[in-house]
Design a protein around this nucleic acid. Structure first.
Lengths: 239, 239
DNA sequence: GAGTGGTCTAGACCACAAT
DNA sequence: TTGTGGTCTAGACCACTCC
């Protein structure tokens, strides 16, 4: 029986078993596609109950380290490629975290007729109106993001009454419409003259653009395009 | 007692309890920061054992829906901001998934003296040599990515012997050096003349650049810069 | 049919926080 | 001290896969 410290109650048994299996995979003792011993045999090996073994294996399966098949067995999953996580906080928070001052200018905030593409996206009858906002965010007075947003009036009826110099549209929408899903696209594009002027960018410099659609209550909640000056703004992260 | 179908064995009890709590949060019956009933009282309410209730609550806590404090209680967590996940697969896989043909041209593959910045990054003595590669990836013959990579020779001693027209550096490194950590940066930049020509881009068009450092065995394994034509390449995703 | 994982229970001991 | 969550057990029944 493999020795895992049972008396020393600092580290839970199921956690020790997880680590143990993980290190077997790291060391190559267990390779991709290999069969992992059955729960019952691991019970014997570690002197643990089946519930404990089950929890260890189940959590490793959730973490995509193992693959479990009912009636068949447990296997080492294929090595996954890395997933890069771009955490999108409120830009106001982000700026404050850097110890800088966030300000915001509201250029537009109105009800507006949607074009054909938006109608398709929001699944509306043609000629319907959406809420529309157009904002510039500043970090210590320097323009850092232009956000153009279309919002589903059904999900956020009070959108036009908000003061976005106090709380960002993102923060407001998160409150009123619980996030169900997101899709996004990141691209590098030359800005239009309008965007370029708002961001006070030199001619010829590219923008880093994040386009994002959020879903809530089974419908499209909002569609937003965020333009950032490419020379001074980046998405970063680690894990 | 709240009725959850116990006889109908299609949906596990713990799953039904999770859904039930989730819908209470969605409906506003449970709000951010609210205290969730204790395990024991939920046992009574759902007619389930404590282990079952515990599993439901524990999984909701892992999913950051709830926050649990030992000795205190269970609470509804703060609404999270969305995290955008950029999944970085092997570019070869990515292209093949689209049903296109991936090819690769190796421009450079050698041992090369590192500059001061790389020495700091890899924590090497000045004058040390790193492995260096410079590749262009093509999708149906169209250049889509230039990758410039520096690799720690200690972690991947056979790097120079690889045939990267068959398997990408990324795929090779994932095999020999298990990924411990990643940091990355995404930016929009105008390409150098060299990059621009390799990607056959018109003058003035920006690049979408992904810069990434990977760690393995407690050391820096590689540093890579990937340049993509901004007009035809985007990072996309959803969740 | 034999063996696997998926789930569930009733009870237990513990660490921790609030009081 | 009381009540909370964190963990663990021994045993059970089930659905599923493979032979």
């Amino acid at each position: 029986m493999i020795h895992v410290s049972k008396t020393q109650n600092s580290i839970p048994l199921f956690q020790q078993i997880k680590s143990n299996i993980l290190s077997q995979i790291k060391s190559g003792e267990l390779k991709e596609g290999d069969r992992v011993p059955t729960e019952m045999s691991l019970c014997v090996r570690y002197g643990a109950s089946r519930m404990t073994i089950n929890r260890a294996l189940r959590e490793l399966a959730i973490e995509q380290i193992l693959r479990r098949v009912q009636g068949d067995g447990t296997y080492v999953a294929q090595q996954k490629y890395q997933a890069t996580i771009v955490e999108i906080k409120s830009i106001a928070d982000e700026i404050r975290t850097r110890g800088h001052v966030h300000t915001c200018e509201v250029l537009q905030l109105c009800r507006k007729k949607a074009d054909a593409e938006l109608n398709r996206l929001f699944n509306l009858k043609s000629g319907s109106r959406l809420f529309h906002s157009n904002l510039v965010h500043f970090e210590d007075g320097v323009p850092i993001q232009v956000e153009t947003r279309w919002v589903n009036p059904v999900l956020a009826p009070d959108y036009l009454e908000q003061d976005f110099t106090l709380s960002t549209p993102n923060e407001y929408l998160m409150k009123v419409a619980p996030l169900e899903g997101v899709s996004y696209r990141i691209e590098a594009t030359l800005p239009s003259l309008n965007i370029r002027k708002l961001l006070k960018m030199p001619r010829g410099n590219p923008c880093l653009v994040l386009y994002r659609i959020t879903r809530s209550f089974g419908a499209i909640a909002s569609s937003v395009t965020m333009w950032h000056p490419g020379d001074s703004y980046q998405f970063v992260g680690s894990f």
